[in-house]
Every structure is written in C-alpha cells, then in structure tokens.
C-alpha cells in the first residue's frame, strides 16, 4: 500500500494546493518528488511526532489540509494525546496517515508493530478511521479523507498485500463496507492488511464446498451498522479477522453491533490474542506463528460452519 499511497498523495497535492505534506523523518519514495517539486508544501519535522501533530493543528486552523505521515505506532501511541487534544477536540482538518499497520514491520520487533491503534483511536470523538483492505482502494481512501472536513486516521499496511479486487474497487465511501467474496455459509468480516488472507481462506474453503461471504470493513468509524447486521444475518455465523489485538478493534466493533441487535449469532474473533508479537521473520511467517495464516482462518471458518451443523 505504500507505493499506492505515495502516488496518491503526490497526485492529490498536485490537484489541491491546500494539502501540505508533513513528515517526521518518514518521507521516502515518492515523497522525494514532493520535496523537490512542491517544497513549499513539504515539511519535515525530524523525529518529533508530537510537534508535527500539534503544528498540523495550527496549520489546519489557518485553512491548510495537513496530511501527516509516519509509522502507525509512533503516531497513534506516542502522539495519542496530541491527536486527542489538538486534532479531535478542536475538530481540525488533519489527516493522519499511518504506514505499517499490524506486524509488517516484521524484522523491527514489537516497538514497531501496530496492534492496538484501532482500539485506542476509536475511543476518540470526532475522529474518522479508515482501513482499506486493498492497495487498489488506497487512492480512494485518501481522496475521501481529504475531501471530508475533520480529523481522519488512515490505517495503511505497507507491502506485499494480496489484491482482492480484480478490477477497480467500488468508489471509496466513508462509512461503507464492501463485499469482496460471496458465500452463504458464514460471514467473515476483515479489515486492512489481512484482507488478502481472508480472501485466500475463502478460496481454500470454496474447494471444500464451504462458501464464505468476505466483507471488507474499510471504514471503521463511522461504521455501517445496518449493512454489517444485514451481512451477519445472512448466515448467522460470524468470524472477525484483523491484524490487531482482538480487544477493541474490528472484533469488538462487530461484537457491539451484534450484541445490541438482541439476536443470536455464532461469533468468533481472530487477531492477536492480547499479546505482543515478539517473534521476527517474514510477514506471512509471523501471521502463521500467531494463528492468522489463510489456513488458520479457513480452519476457524470451517469450525464455525460445522459447529452450526451440530447444533
């Protein structure tokens, strides 16, 4: 998603003179072109995320649209209070773009992983949270973020995502979910970087005659409660999947919606089980070690489908 994002910010800055690119020693790739071609709207704060966020608030108060860019965890955790007070409280028109959600910073270790950002950030009033599941929808997500007024957190993966859309994805609309694979046996809600694994799991199960409805929850806040409930009701068997702690993220969001419906569902959450990822290795390998490979996902989906048959 990094390549797609960098192209998107470059293109959008060319089109919209109000966008300002803010980085904290984090601008690589296409950002070099931004620096060279739009130097008056490129600001590198050095390794100073808090100053970057608060200064973004100041810039936004003067009519700019600052797009802040950095590794998710340094923004979400180190600068949490700055996002809370300086962006959310005053409803500043700042877009916080985190690159490297989940454990894609695989060799860097747990300080660089981002497995709790949805949990902490979704508690902030006025903050919109977008989590595209496909490289192809990154452009639309950034465009939607820039076109709306108010603070947005854009949660991006980084590299090697499996594409789930053969053609152009449906237009990115804030507050909407999107079905990426159709099936009537159970519903798998997934978000962000792990969407491709959800898709692969559905393909594995298809060969076994189990058909999974895979829903891309690409807008986490606001979230389309009605559509989620509709998708869940179609099968009554629900699994959530995220490259995030199972506490407070997508699993919790879906659980809240299902619980408040007052209806019965079979329900499981997949993600990191309240643990840090302390292993090193390739991204796919790390997910496998923590029970989040396509095979694991397929196993969980199959389990919930079979359980239902036993009832």
């Amino acid at each position: 998603m990094r390549i797609e994002y960098e192209q998107a910010i470059y293109d959008l800055m060319k089109k919209n003179q109000k966008i300002v690119a803010l980085v904290a020693d984090s601008g690589t790739g296409k950002y070099k072109n931004i620096q060279e071609e739009m130097s008056d709207r490129y600001i590198d704060f050095g390794i100073a995320e808090n100053t970057m966020i608060a200064a973004a608030s100041g810039l936004a108060s003067e009519g700019w649209i600052p797009v802040v860019y950095g590794i998710n965890n340094f923004l979400a955790y180190r600068s949490y209070e700055f996002i809370r007070n300086d962006l959310c409280m005053d409803k500043r028109n700042v877009k916080v773009v985190g690159i490297g959600a989940g454990v894609i910073q695989n060799m860097q270790g747990p300080t660089h992983h981002t497995l709790e950002d949805i949990s902490c950030l979704r508690a902030l009033p006025n903050l919109t949270i977008l989590s595209p599941g496909s490289p192809k929808e990154v452009y639309g997500a950034l465009e939607a973020a820039v076109n709306m007024a108010g603070p947005v957190y854009l949660r991006l993966a980084k590299l090697f995502e499996t594409e789930v859309y053969e053609n152009a994805p449906p237009k990115f609309k804030i507050g909407e979910v999107n079905v990426v694979h159709y099936g009537e046996d159970m519903t798998l809600f997934a978000t962000g970087s792990i969407m491709g694994d959800a898709y692969e799991a559905a393909k594995i199960l298809e060969k076994e005659g189990i058909y999974v409805q895979v829903v891309n929850v690409r807008s986490l806040k606001p979230v389309d409660k009605a559509e989620i409930l509709k998708q869940a009701r179609m099968t009554r068997k629900v699994v959530t999947l995220e490259e995030h702690n199972i506490y407070g993220g997508l699993g919790s969001i879906i659980a809240e919606i299902l619980a408040e419906s007052g209806e019965a569902f079979l329900f499981r959450r997949m993600g990191f089980n309240d643990e840090f990822c302390t292993e090193y290795g390739w991204h796919q390998e790390l997910k496998r070690l923590y029970g989040l490979s396509p095979k694991h996902i397929a196993g969980m989906c199959k389990d919930i489908v079979l359980k239902d048959r036993l009832l």
């Binding site: 709207r41 970057m52 608060a54 200064a55 810039l59 108060s61 209070e81 007070n85």
Partner: peptide, 24 residues
C-alpha cells in the same frame, strides 16, 4: 484560538500558525 489544558502543546500549534503566515 485553540483549546488547551494539557501542557506542552501550544508552542507547536503556534509554530503551525507562524509557518502558515510564511506560506501564505
């Protein structure tokens, strides 16, 4: 101009405003 309460925020917010004046 801005909401405050937690210390250590205002100087950077001011930097953003001063920067904007330069840019505009």
């Amino acid at each position: 101009e801005n909401s405050g309460g937690s210390l250590g925020h205002g100087l950077a917010i001011a930097a953003g405003k001063a920067l904007s004046a330069k840019m505009k």
